[in-house]
Design a protein around this nucleic acid. Structure first.
Lengths: 142, 142
DNA sequence: TCAATAGTTTAGAATTATTATAATGTAGCT
DNA sequence: AGCTACATTATAATAATTCTAAACTATTGA
């Protein structure tokens, strides 16, 4: 339950009220060792299970976006039909497994810093993201 | 009109029938100097103008996907709400202007080859894509 | 040249992901 | 306890995309 207190703190800090739903979301999202990648649908499922009752889709969308705006979650674009989110909000890159549709973090030393020689005049670089798509080695790959 | 013949050839080669609609799409897509980035909606607009009559959305979707499957177009994921396509199907990277929502090609020498030190066992790398998000330098950026 | 057929186009319906709405509920303050 | 502002909810609305089935057209071969 002490972690629960932490989540209450966390939510307060960013100006979100610690509601039952949000605390359950926190548990699912942040109470884990490793980075967690998910779609909204995944999350609705998992929270519902944890609460042992249905949570509204709208709540999950709203809250995920609130977390995102506050910098607790990061959106990742891989394919245009689904939004993936990442609990690791630091700058990092990804592998995407085209067979399983799974996202895997690269850590900083898996990949050398990307060296960009050109820049767009009057614009500043906000982010640099590398996406490495992988698939089964042997058989016919799509 | 000779370019039109080329397009007929091109389509035949990949097993697509050269219909009025597809030839107009070819004109819009491939009859240009520089790489072209577009969304389906952009394209419907432009083809309709060229034909001086409405083209069905479904036709554009079908044909874009046919071109994509045949390797004439490449899809690029930037934000999860829109699909962008690119007439440059070679491996290359992109700038995305968050102010104007414009995509800009990097050419090979704008960016040093990305050096990946980790690999996922049993998987082969299909593609490595870098997306550099840029926005106005001066004022408040989102 | 013409008809058969296999692939195409089309409008509109269906689907899916996401966002908006408006009523009801709840946290935090007094 | 009760007020107020913010949250949650079910449902409706919107947007992008895909499906469907009927009408159409390019190609082939008689």
């Amino acid at each position: 339950m002490s972690k629960n207190c932490n989540f209450i703190e966390k939510l307060r800090e960013v100006g979100l009220r610690p509601t039952k739903q949000r605390l359950n979301m926190c548990e699912v999202l942040f109470n884990r060792e490793k980075t967690f990648h998910f779609t909204i649908n995944d999350l609705v499922q998992m929270i519902s299970e944890k609460m042992n009752q249905k949570i509204s889709l709208a709540t999950v969308y709203n809250t995920v976006h609130a977390f995102e705006k506050k910098g607790y979650l990061k959106e990742i674009s891989i394919d245009s039909h689904k939004s993936y989110f990442d609990t690791n909000t630091s700058a990092h890159h990804h592998f995407f497994d085209e067979d399983t549709h799974e996202l895997i973090d690269c850590d900083a030393n898996d990949i050398e810093p990307v060296n960009i020689k050109k820049n767009i005049t009057g614009k500043k670089i906000n982010s640099v993201e590398v996406l490495i798509k992988v698939a089964s080695d042997n058989q016919n790959q799509k």
